[in-house]
Amino acid sequence: MLGRTANGLYWMFRYIERAENIARLIDAGLRMSLTRSGVTDDDWDGVLQSAGVREPYGEMHDKTTSVDAIDYLLRERANPSSVMSCFESGRNNARMVRTALTRDTWEAVNECWIEMKTLLAKRVKPADLPEVIDAIKRRVALIRGAFHGSMLRNELYNFARIGTLIERADNTSRILDVKYYVLLPSVSAVGSSLDNVQWESILRSVSAHRSYSWVYDAEYKPANIADFLILNGQMPRSLSYCYEKIVSNLGYLAQEYDERLPAHETADAMLRALQALSVRDIMDKGLHEFLEDFVQRNNQLGQEISEGYRFYQ
């Protein structure tokens, strides 16, 4: 396959994954503002930061308001990570790699883009937000379903999956890093109601506020939350899960190409490191330092894959 096609698939799935993650972040932000009296716009600063767009937002807006922040995250064309920009880029990539996609997958992406163009044509009224966020999640679920249900398990599939997982690992670690301070053990042994709101918001932004209680106690504990999102291999957005899957997809590529590349070593080393760690180790070493390092190495892996498999635009 063309290096351009591999690149297109990888980015198509990164963008689609990102669109969904941004929608979740908005959802979590909205929820916080509902459950708290005297909402401060700082919360939206946190959301913008998790999305990695706090700075460019600041260049367009003097202050942070929920209305502007939401619009920036959902629709702003100048923001390459807004939901609309992500779908646009995802669909453009899909169009470019059209011959690598099954008809079902292509149609799911195209219909998603058609619906979003209408839905996000104008500023979304606050009352319509939940519906719009649902629609985004539903569309991405349809794309994912069509993809898993119809694509051959070959290199195309592996490149697409790796794109999804690298993006997801990046998102999860950013979400944690923005809120790392509320997870530090020194804050308090027993969560205040304020902490509870913060903790729930973290879980909600990875759609895990329910599943958390299936795995741990119903009670939120910072160490458990960190464990769940970083180390728990059952949790499909945890760093461990992402790396298990990245390693296995890279493994199929190594088989298919009969060649191991630097990317394989990097990914294996990262997975081994995650498997050897306990949440206590991470907390002791410093959660923030851990996450910062992780984001950087995750990026580096993306680079190595792109070079090793000769991606180009």
Binding site: M1, L2, G3, R4, A6, E155, Y257, R310, Y312
Partner: peptide, 14 residues
Amino acid sequence: RVMDGKVKMRTTRG
């Protein structure tokens, strides 16, 4: 691109 007297495409394998 043209290489070694052939038209070749840039693939993930070279």
